[in-house]
Write a protein that binds this DNA or RNA. Sequence first.
RNA 1: GGCCCGUUCGUCUAGCGGCCUAGGACACCGCCCUCUCAAGGCGGAGGCACGGGUUCGAACCCCGUACGGGCUACCA
Length: 489
Amino acid sequence: MSDPVRVRFAPSPTGLLHIGGARTAIYNWAFARSQGGTFVLRIDDTDRERSTDENTASILQAMRWLGLDWDEGPDAGGDVGPYFQTQRGDLYTHALELLKDKGQAYPCFCSAEELDARRQAAMASATFSGYDRTCRSVSREQADARIMAGEPHVWRVRVPENRGDVVIDDVIRGEVTWPAESMDDFILVRTDATPTYMFATVVDDWKMGITHIIRGDDHLSNTPRQIAVYEALGAPVPLFAHMGLIFGADGKRLSKRHGATSVVAYAEQGYLSEALLNYLALLGWSIDDATTVFDRERLVSEFDLTRVSKTPAVWDPEKLDWMNGVYIRAMSPSQLVDAMTPWLEAENLASAEDIQARRPWFDALAPLISERVKRMDEIVPMVRFLFDESVEIDEASRSKVLEKDGAGSALDAAAEGFAALEDFDAEHIEATLRAVPEATGVKAKIAFQAVRVAVTGTMVSPPLFESLELLGKQASLARIAAARPLASD
RNA sequence: GGCCCGUUCGUCUAGCGGCCUAGGACACCGCCCUCUCAAGGCGGAGGCACGGGUUCGAACCCCGUACGGGCUACCA
């Protein structure tokens, strides 16, 4: 048996939960769950300028919405906390002390300006552009004296001279090698004594016992530097898994230019969390050659880190829409009514109490719309005619339907037939309408569309007979009467 | 400039040397169904970046080239 799996997701609360971050979280979560491991959530809030509590709260909420639960982290606790980097200052201080004692870190007094100049020169001409290790040769005594004198300095890692090429066996990409000469004595602790990202994450991942680091391949090039820190610390090096990023249609990294990029934005647009989870999981991973739709349980039972794609994936809103439609159609009428309740409430079409009181009516409405919408926000416009007092008939519908010859006669015949109905249900309504063409000589298409426009206000609506039933006899007749003056005979 | 990674239909992908006449899904096109719109059914078009090897045999292995991406920060 191998060691118990411990993975983490470590978002920075400098913004909302991004869909790229969400996918990273999903893969970490699915891997932990599939391995019976532990999923840790850590908030990397070292960027104090841009990090906010609101963002943290929103990220946690978005993760819960997606159904991603964490075993350790904010609100969950755990033995290796705190789970906010800003509260872990002591750990970084101790780690640096450890490195100093071992001679694995040294102070560097080079100014940022000097470094800049040297880097420019190196990049223009030669090969390697990393730090030239000037301050490595400063003796311990000299260094101590300069520090005592208050000279500004950073702390750099001392990469061993005899360190050979760095090789990792990436779970997703296989063996990756970096030449020893490319190893840089990069900065661990800044002039202001705060740790750099490179140092803080390694200390955290080490102290938190993380066994697998699953992240975007934008971090692949950072890996050898982080390995240098693990080795300096004498810490076990975890396994790495670098996945391809998510791009926009233009092949560039996904950003605001490409539309909504946050999970909450998708929730607000009416995407179901199950659908977004499924779509995101499938963007860079697959079960087999045929499975596209799968639920959370299947994701966990089938998840295989080695099957995650190396290739960047292009975000495809159309496929997301299709998949969301699949999930909407898969809901029972009752489930759909529950899901659409907040949307109806938000637009003041009905309150939750109304809906409960007239549950059978809403349950009957659900199937009429479920196969006609891809997003929840499309429901209100589609059913509004059932809730408003009256409808406004748009110009196109009037000219293209009501002004057709015979439209008026059809409305008259329909009204007459409806008025005579005792049971105003879809079946009788259909029979009545189907009799109209014969009685009036008006084409069925024209007759049906005339009634549709009169009752719904538009040429496109849910199925007519059922819609009329749900509207009720009185309202239906009133709308036909109201539209009649607009219609040609 | 240096180092690293990647490249299968428009898009997401299956493929891990013979099962490939390259499979599935979205999108697209056509037909069917049909009270509009959908949903659904059936069918179609569409791809191994390029060039060299290796092999009896290559989408799969190797080497180049091209293109794309990442890192090269006292950002994360």
